[in-house]
Design a protein around this nucleic acid. Structure first.
Length: 211
DNA sequence: CTTTGGATCGTCT
DNA sequence: GACGATCCAAAGG
C-alpha cells in the first residue's frame, strides 16, 4: 500500500480508509465547464448511505460541441438531468446492463457532466463486496463506471438527486485531501467519437483506476 | 499478462 | 433496427 503524505498536501495519495473531517461540496465548485470541474473532483468523496468512496478517475463530457456526449444532439428524456443545475447526479443505463453516474457541471440549461469512473473503497466495504460478487480484489470493487455504481449502490432511482444537500442519500464530500497537483490526463475510454480530447483524469500512481 | 466475444435492453434513427 | 460513456469469463502467451 502507498504511504500517505502529510494531510492536505497537494498531490498526495490518500491512505485507504482514512478520512478526515468532511464538508459538503458546494454547488459553486461544480459550476463551469466539465473539463475544469473534472480534475478538481479527484480525491473528493462520494457518499451513498453508509458507503463511502474516494474519487480516483473521472471523465469530462460537454454539450452540443462534444460529439461523445449524450447531450450532443440536444435534450431528450434520458439526458434531461444533464441540463439541470450543477450538483445533480445524472445516472444512465449502459449496454442495457450497468448503471453509470455523472456529476452535473455547467450551469442550468447548459449540459456538462463529469463521469465517475473509479473510486477507492473507504467505508461500507462489506456492503460493496456483497453487491460486487465478481470482484476478487478490493481495488477492483469500484474500478470502472459500472462497478462503481454497483459497489456504492447507485441505480436509476438516483438520477436527478442533488449531491449538495446535507443528509441526502447520495452526496459529494471533501476532506483535507485536496486534488492531485498534477492529475494524469488522457483520452476518454469506450467512446468512438472525439477520441482525441484528453478529458480523462485520474490520480497518478493509484492501482484502483479502470482498464 | 493480453485479447476476444457474449450478454442485454433502453434509446434514438 | 442498430448501437452503445461496460463487464466478465475464457482462452492464449
Amino acid at each position: 500500500m502507498t504511504v500517505p503524505g502529510p494531510a492536505g498536501a497537494a498531490g498526495e495519495v490518500a491512505a485507504p480508509g482514512v478520512v478526515g473531517r468532511t464538508r459538503q461540496v458546494r454547488r459553486a465548485e461544480l459550476t463551469g465547464p466539465a473539463v475544469d470541474v473534472a480534475p478538481r473532483l479527484l480525491n473528493a468523496l462520494v457518499a451513498v448511505g453508509d458507503r463511502l468512496g474516494r474519487i480516483l478517475e473521472v471523465e469530462a463530457y460537454a454539450g452540443a460541441d462534444d460529439p461523445a456526449s449524450h447531450a450532443h444532439r440536444g435534450r431528450t428524456a434520458r439526458n434531461a438531468t444533464m441540463f439541470g443545475r450543477p450538483g445533480l447526479l445524472y445516472v444512465y443505463r449502459s449496454y442495457g446492463i450497468h448503471w453509470c453516474a455523472n456529476v452535473v457541471a455547467g450551469t442550468e440549461g447548459v449540459a456538462q457532466a463529469v463521469l465517475l469512473r473509479a473510486v477507492a473503497p473507504v467505508r461500507g466495504i462489506e456492503a460493496m463486496w456483497a453487491d460486487r460478487p465478481a470482484a476478487r480484489r478490493e481495488r477492483d470493487l469500484a474500478s470502472g463506471p459500472g462497478k462503481l455504481c454497483a459497489a456504492l449502490g447507485i441505480t436509476g432511482e438516483d438520477d436527478g438527486a442533488d449531491l449538495c444537500v446535507a443528509g441526502a442519500r447520495v452526496r459529494l464530500l471533501r476532506d483535507a485531501v485536496g486534488p492531485p497537483a498534477e492529475p494524469a490526463a488522457g483520452a476518454r475510454i469506450g467512446i468512438t467519437r472525439a477520441v482525441d480530447r484528453p478529458w480523462r483524469f485520474h490520480v497518478p500512481g493509484h492501482p484502483g483506476v479502470s482498464r
